[in-house]
Measured scan of single mutants.
Amino acid sequence: KVLVLALYDYQEKSPREVTMKKGDILTLLNSTNKDWWKVEVNGRQGFVPAAYVKVL
């Protein structure tokens, strides 16, 4: 399983997205889209901007 680090806070803007806080460790589920990556955080799955996270 691939983990990513949240570099910035992100507030979800649609039901398909998830909120994350800077420093959160998320599970990367899909990174085929260069702009939006699907992650799991706190038991929820959704998209975050790829530029806001870094693969650990």
Rank of each mutant, 00 (worst) to 15 (best):
G23L: 03
V55M: 14
V18K: 02
A50N: 03
E40N: 06
V48T: 02
G43Q: 10
Q11S: 14
L26D: 00
V18C: 07
T32A: 14
K13T: 15
V53C: 09
A51W: 10
A51M: 14
Q45H: 10
W37G: 00
K13M: 15
F47W: 14
Y8P: 00
V2T: 15
T19F: 05
L26N: 01
T27L: 12
P49K: 04
N42D: 15
L28I: 05
T19M: 04
L28E: 00
K13S: 13
K13V: 10
D9I: 02
R16S: 15
G43S: 09
D35L: 13
K1H: 15
E40F: 07
N33P: 05
S14F: 07
K21G: 05
L26H: 03
D24P: 00
F47E: 05
N33I: 07
N30F: 09
K22L: 06
N33Q: 12
N42A: 14
W37M: 05
N30C: 11
L26S: 03
K38W: 13
T27R: 10
D9L: 02
D35K: 13
R44Q: 11
N33Y: 09
Y8M: 13
R16D: 14
P49Y: 02
G43V: 05
V39T: 02
D24H: 05
D9F: 04
T32C: 10
V4W: 04
M20N: 00
N30V: 10
E12W: 06
M20Q: 02
I25E: 04
R16G: 15
A51K: 13
I25S: 03
L29S: 04
S14I: 05
V53Y: 01
V53F: 06
P49M: 03
K54A: 15
Y8I: 12
L7M: 10
N33M: 10
T32P: 04
A6F: 01
Q11P: 06
F47A: 03
W36S: 03
T27K: 07
K13F: 06
V39G: 00
V53M: 06
E17D: 06
G46S: 02
A51Y: 08
Q11H: 14
Q11M: 14
A50E: 03
A50D: 01
E40M: 10
K21H: 11
L7T: 05
T32Y: 13
K1A: 15
K54Y: 15
E17Q: 11
G23T: 02
Y10C: 01
W36M: 07
V39A: 02
K34Q: 10
S14W: 07
K1R: 11
V53R: 00
P49N: 02
K38Y: 11
P49F: 03
L3Y: 15
A51S: 08
V18M: 15
L5K: 08
V41P: 01
N30K: 09
E12F: 06
D24T: 09
V48C: 04
L28R: 02
R44D: 05
Q45P: 05
P15D: 12
K21R: 13
A50I: 03
E12M: 12
D9K: 03
K22F: 06
V4M: 07
R16E: 13
W37I: 06
M20C: 06
E40Y: 11
L5M: 15
T32V: 10
A51I: 11
E12Q: 14
P49L: 04
L26K: 00
S14R: 08
R44W: 04
V18Q: 03
E12Y: 05
Y8A: 12
G23S: 03
G43I: 04
K54E: 08
Y8R: 12
V55A: 07
L29T: 05
K38N: 08
L5E: 11
R44G: 04
A50H: 04
Y52E: 02
G23D: 07
L29R: 04
N33C: 08
E17K: 04
A50M: 06
K54M: 15
Y10H: 05
N42T: 08
Y52K: 06
V41L: 12
T32F: 11
I25A: 04
G43Y: 11
V48N: 00
K38D: 04
K1S: 13
T32G: 11
T19S: 14
P15T: 09
S14K: 06
N30W: 08
E40S: 08
K13N: 11
A6C: 08
W37V: 09
D9Y: 04
L28N: 01
M20W: 01
L29N: 03
G46N: 01
T27D: 07
L7E: 04
D35C: 11
V48I: 12
F47Y: 12
K38T: 08
M20P: 00
L5Q: 12
L28C: 05
Q11E: 15
K38G: 06
L5D: 01
Y10T: 01
L28P: 01
G43L: 07
W36R: 03
V48D: 00
V53K: 00
W37F: 09
